[in-house]
Amino acid sequence: MIKPKVRVVLANSLSRQYTGGKTDFEIEATRVRDILKALQGMFPGIREHLEEETAVSIDGMIYDDAYLQEVTASAEVFFIPKLDAG
């Protein structure tokens, strides 16, 4: 099955740590788990960090745990610090 390409963006701190500074990626995915798998393949160790320590913004909607969340062809997926509050 051909999966759509989505735009994936990492925070600067993550990119410094894992990707040599690259923040923008185009990745074929139908769910966030596809993105995590693809990134892990390129940058070993990044998946655990993303799963444990980031929330995911898909076209602006924030999901604390987005492993199974669906993404569409034009989606923009950002990994951001997890949110919490008072």
Partner: peptide, 14 residues
Amino acid sequence: VEGSPTIMGTKHPS
């Protein structure tokens, strides 16, 4: 508005 950029780089939702 919906889709405007945030300082994190993400889009604003609803």
